[in-house]
Design a protein around this nucleic acid. Structure first.
Lengths: 109, 109
DNA sequence: CAATGCTACTCTGTATTGCTTAGTACCACT
DNA sequence: AGTGGTACTAAGCAATACAGAGTAGCATTG
C-alpha cells in the first residue's frame, strides 16, 4: 500500500505504545515489528522520533542493556501514564473508526 | 471525544470528499455535516483549507450560486479525478483500519 | 435604522507529526 | 581490512488540522 503517511499521523504513536505494552522492547525491533504488521514503509527515523517523544512526555521507562550482536539497546516499557495514554488511544481510535465506518456504510444506502 | 486532531489528519479530507460525493454542497454545510457526524470540534477554518486544497489539486468542480438567506455559496462536486481519489481513500482506510484492528485484537490473546 | 445574529467565505500564522537523509558506532564473519 | 547487519542520533522538510481574526450578505427585532 502506497503513501499512507498522512493517514498514519496520530496512529503510529499508538501502535508503538501498543507494541511496547506487550513486552519490553527497543527501537530497532519495534521498526521490524511494524514492518511485519503491514506498515512496511515505516523507517527507523520515524520510530526513533516517536520514542524520543514518548520519553519526553514521560510515558515510558528506559533501560539500557548490552547486546551480543551489536551496539547496546535502549529497552522501553510503559509506565502507569503510558498505559493510560494507550487506553486513551484505543478509545479515540474506536470513536474515529466507528464514525468513518458509519460514513462509509451510509454511502452505500 | 476530546482532541482527535492528530488522528483526523489524513482522514478528514477523505470525509469531505465522501460528503461532496453524495450531493453538490458547500463549505458551511460540510462543516455542519461533519459536526453532526460526530466530528464536533471540526471548525470552518479547517474545512475551508481542505476545500481550497481539493480545488488546487483539481479534484472538484465549483459553481457559485446565490443564497436567499445569506451570502452566495460555492458549491462543490467531485470530478472524475475526485472520484478516483475518494476510491483510493477508502482503500487506504480499509488497509490501515484492518491492521489496527489486528494489532488491537492480538493484544487480547 | 441601528443592532444583533446567523450564514458564508477568506486569510495568516502555528503546532504536531511522520519522513528524508545522513551520520556514528558496535559486532561478526570472511 | 572490508562488508553487512544491528542500533541509535540528529537536522531539516512537508503535510495537515487548528486558532483567530476579518469581511460581508441577509433577516429579525427593538
Amino acid at each position: 500500500m502506497d503513501n499512507l503517511t498522512e493517514m498514519l499521523k496520530g496512529v503510529l504513536e499508538g501502535c508503538v505504545l501498543e507494541i511496547i505494552s506487550r513486552k519490553e522492547t527497543y527501537g530497532y525491533e519495534i521498526v521490524k515489528t511494524l514492518n511485519a504488521l503491514g506498515f512496511e514503509d515505516v523507517v527507523e527515523g520515524t520510530v526513533y522520533t516517536i520514542l524520543i517523544r514518548l520519553e519526553k512526555n514521560k510515558l515510558v521507562d528506559i533501560e539500557k542493556k548490552p547486546s551480543e550482536i551489536g551496539p547496546p539497546r535502549k529497552f522501553y516499557s510503559l509506565n502507569e501514564e503510558g498505559w493510560r495514554e494507550l487506553s486513551m488511544f484505543w478509545e479515540k481510535w474506536g470513536y474515529v473508526s466507528s464514525r468513518l465506518t458509519q460514513l462509509k456504510e451510509d454511502s452505500r444506502v
